[in-house]
Design a protein around this nucleic acid. Sequence first.
DNA 1: CGGGAAAAGCTTTTT
DNA 2: GCTTTTCCCG
Length: 711
Amino acid sequence: MILNSLNPAQQEAVQAPLGHQLILAGAGSGKTRVLTHRIVWLVEKENISPFNILAVTFTNKAANEMRSRIESMLSMPTKAMWIGTFHGLSHRFLRSHWQEAGLPQSFQILDSDDQFRMIRRVIHALNLDEDRFPPKEAQWFINGQKEEGREPHQVEPRDIAGQMFIRIYQAYQEACQRAGVMDFADLLLKTCKLLQTNATLRAHYQARFRCLLVDEFQDTNNLQYEWLKLLAGENNAVMIVGDDDQSIYGWRGARIENIHCFSKDFPGAKIIRLEQNYRSTSVILEAANALISKNSGRLGKNLWTEGKTGDPITIYAGFNETDEAFFIVNRIRDLRQNSYSLRQIAILYRSNAQSRVIEEALMQFGIPYRVYGGLRYFERAEIKDALAYLRLLTNLSDDPAFERIVNTPPRGIGDRTLTTIREYAKASGLTLWQALEQLLEQKQFTTRTETALLSFVNLIKTMIERTLALELHKQVEYVLYASGLIDHYRKEKGEKGLTRMENLEELVNAAHQFTQEGVPDEMSPIAAFLAYAALESGDVQAEVYDDCVQLMTLHSAKGLEFPVVFLAGCEEELFPHYLSMGDPKALEEERRLCYVGVTRAMHKLYMSYAEVRRMHGKEAYHRPSRFLHEIPVELVEEIRFRTKVSRPQAMMSTYQPEPEGRFHVGQEVRHRVFGDGIVLDIEGDGDDMKVTVRFPKLGTKVLIASYLTEK
DNA sequence: CGGGAAAAGCTTTTT
DNA sequence: GCTTTTCCCG
């Protein structure tokens, strides 16, 4: 193992004695390298068997990457090592111990969309008003309770409405149990509960995992922390890696506090800081450091680099969002001339809605781009339809799957028929499938409905018989055609239907590929495939060979790096977002988000804002983001193009403001970075005053007045 | 059942 | 304002 490729702090972390370690790893400080080297070190130097190691990450992508890196460094198989996400590892645990956990062997996993539908059904079944008890809120409530480790009976009701939400939670939980399904949070919760109550299992796993490693620890929630403590027990060594300054998922339950609690809960924990950055220029790092220093309660870190100073950060004041987009596109064209390839350039923004204007500008100039995010493969409606058939075949009790496909494609089973089935099921505590069978026996329907229902029942039964012996991908293929899904989407007009057909056909390939890569022995291929689809909803990664500008939100940019970064929409109300501005905690998270954005850039960072922006249909005038002001002036170069779009002629000629205060046209002024120049124009007043200055060597620049002094 | 009109969102996202 | 979902009627 080559340790001399690591810096002293990294080496210290990799070679740390077997105990608790807290690695505070700044952006671009090589934390993944440290983590993988550490695991290799444990195996090679501490003689820990891969069998005794467990490593947790937040995404499947990170887990896969970690395993393959370790494999390439280690001369032995890593199969015995547990590497995965909290959810993936919990799933693996519950598959082995479904009996102890009181689960059906073929239990399936609900994604958040399935969960939402199921909760809505439950609310209807309880005869509650959807307006008074919105499914979204119930979902938020339920997931929140689960993250705190509370089952329905453990929740303290706050008020009458809270009491109702508990009842919804209770009913939802019962419905899940009946259907043999569990949601994401259940995977963690059931694992924790089982480890808490079953001393034998707890002892077994605590004895096994002598070394536990957690990546991105600042993103853990309470339940995940509990999960870790249960497996760690008294004797196992825990290494966590994280960066409190990059915690940007507080809004979905991540507790930055966990990283603060670690030293207390894991006695003797040693803190090691990785502060040397290998990514960015010192200008970018200084800006990031200055920005994040405005936050309180940090563990504290100061990134530094041995690298170049680099160019100043460019701040562009656009007239409106179109002007901003054109600025970006123009700069991209320049960069391209300067031998940057498009894939080295990223445009980051706070919210997805911002991408449209930028996309239009890129399209207009024929610049290829790729937008990250959006619906992923296994989340597409047509794919979920197909998977619901597979789910129902595996498990006729799967009510959410039943609901989804009973009338997809349309086969004459309407809402009234379904209501009858649902009510019967509810009254007799049966699953929808059982209720349907009993009602058919009792001849409860009109002839037409009965025919429709019978053909559905027969369809499913035939599918089960016919696919039993088939290989997984043949099963999928059979289901696609026999269900009529293919025909259904074929009829859908336009490009949409075509894409959906292609997606469905792709599912056969996906299934084939899945079986080739090997199915865990303890599961049936179909169950394994379904679990895979639910847990790993499929990347929409840009292919590396595509030379495209990368567009994404700041959140999805985390963990990535780009030679050139444009950070668009740096305006108050948008970034920081208006919904976060009232709450100091949320505001600090926005600042961390900005920190994440700034530290993505390797060589060149552009930040831009628009003076006028159409938001929710209205023209809104926002001030430049406070984050821009938190970056030291000497690191910044502010510019504004005087394009036609950016300022109507009329305003210039009729409105010539008399210089208020310190500056007037023709005056000689001084700037800390650019030196001496002459004032050409003045706009606005007070804090917003912008002064156009001509500098002898640098040309004309528009600057904020407070950055200038009289000569 | 399907299409068009009305209404409701509208920050960030992984599992 | 624009887009997505829901609702209502032929």
